[in-house]
Write a protein that binds this DNA or RNA. Structure first.
Lengths: 145, 145
DNA sequence: GCAACATATTTACAGCTTGAATGATTCGAG
DNA sequence: CTCGAATCATTCAAGCTGTAAATATGTTGC
């Protein structure tokens, strides 16, 4: 070891800062593009994750947020006629979220907007794959606090 | 290329989700440890970044948030006698933030708490260096929207 | 010196997010 | 079948965060 004992801790702190900084960048990027469609960032994130019918809990997991928050966000989307809450076919506790035709169309436009000048465009596809692997490993290793 | 045309966009979306997910993990980790010291997550983040005297703007940059937010957070820390706002020696617009003795002691304890079982402990030091390099490259390539 | 513009911080406000409490439903053990 | 624990979604209170505007100071060019 060529480094002092707590240098590892310092490196980890810097790394946490970088992760957080990039997450902020991504959020800001989403916010900008979403605004052009009349959506807020969390609304856009929800729409982005709605690749098919799913429950509130499932959407919350995809958005990495609390279920109570998805209630709030989905309320907004529902008022704009972008998504609908249907009863779940097999579980009466759950709601089955589905995009309306209008919602599906807006989602397509949103995905197109988000694809250009992504905050990750500074990395080559290969570098992105490496990053993907490392992040997945980090997330999987620290499951639930 | 062995992949369909928009597969790259999908990969980037997944990557954004991973970055966000890990950032959430880190925030949660900070929140847990901070709570044992009577601090909220943003308060702890501010304390962590206060490695020396700095201005509000500088702290905001380190915390990757808006200056108005640091006003809010520093207000809380000041009420707990952890930091103080002093006049800046050369720029009368700016405030010079400094830790109190109590704040410095608490910061030391906080750093010790944060160092054990870091959310990044699933990666080896070498992997962390690779991750650091990739993140820095991504952040630098997307400067300001 | 002064006008015009840029910067540092704060305030007011609106929107987002969490965590705890609640009601409805499901599931497994007896 | 029934009890109790667990799960899904919602509500509410409290706190966090960003935007826009306001105030004060600094800087530049004339």
């Amino acid at each position: 070891m060529t480094t002092p004992p707590d240098s590892q801790a310092i490196a980890e702190r810097q790394l946490c800062g970088l992760v957080n900084g990039l997450a902020q960048r991504i959020a800001e990027h989403v916010r900008e593009r979403a605004a052009t469609l009349g959506l807020t960032a969390p609304q856009a994130t929800a729409l982005r994750e709605m690749s098919g019918p799913m429950t509130m809990r499932e959407l919350a997991d995809r958005m990495s947020c609390e279920p109570s928050n998805t209630t709030f966000v989905v309320d907004k989307l529902e008022k704009q006629n972008l998504v609908e809450r249907h009863p779940h076919p097999t579980d009466r506790r759950a709601k089955r979220l589905a995009l309306t035709a209008e919602g599906a169309a807006l989602r397509r436009r949103l995905l197109d907007l988000l694809a250009v000048d992504s905050p990750l465009s500074g990395l080559t596809p290969q570098e992105q794959r490496v990053l993907h692997g490392l992040l997945e490993q980090a997330v999987r290793a620290a499951p639930a606090g």
